[in-house]
Design a binder for these strands. Structure first.
Length: 117
DNA sequence: CATCTGACGACCG
DNA sequence: GCGGTCGCCAGAT
């Protein structure tokens, strides 16, 4: 798969910290490709130590099926993330993958149109 | 090769 | 503030 960088990034997420699909997508030079990231997460093989539960939707909203959201919130609480509400405080637990994503080579595209709509 | 879908994001109504 | 639509990428049909 081409999700190796995605997995690597997710695995780098510190315990008690969370990020969003958009952040990951941007870090991977895939602006607007948040869906692809979500797809990658869905395709994330279990048993690889990939903390997929640390990846949330924009604004800290959990965008996953109830069955997974339940587990996700449970795991997050276990790691110390306050999921008291349906929204997680990104200002406190928000982790920026862009801050350390300096590994070159991501996607050969490198352009995503500046104009929108 | 063309089309739809999906654990998303942002904008418009 | 909430819901619906368009746009993005990668994979499956």
């Amino acid at each position: 798969m081409s999700w190796e960088p995605v997995y690597r990034l997710v695995k780098k997420i510190p315990r008690g910290r969370v990020t969003t699909y958009g952040e990951v997508a941007c870090a991977l030079r895939l602006p607007g490709g948040a869906r692809a990231v979500g797809y990658a997460m869905a395709a994330t093989p279990s048993g690889r130590g990939i903390p997929w539960h640390r990846v949330l939707g924009a604004g800290g909203h959990i965008r996953v099926p109830e069955r997974y959201a339940m587990i996700q919130r449970k795991l997050l609480q276990t790691e110390g993330v306050a999921t008291d509400s349906i929204v997680i405080d990104m200002k406190k637990y928000g982790w920026s993958p862009l801050a350390r994503t300096k590994k070159g080579k991501k996607s050969p595209r490198g352009r995503a149109k500046t104009k929108r709509r």
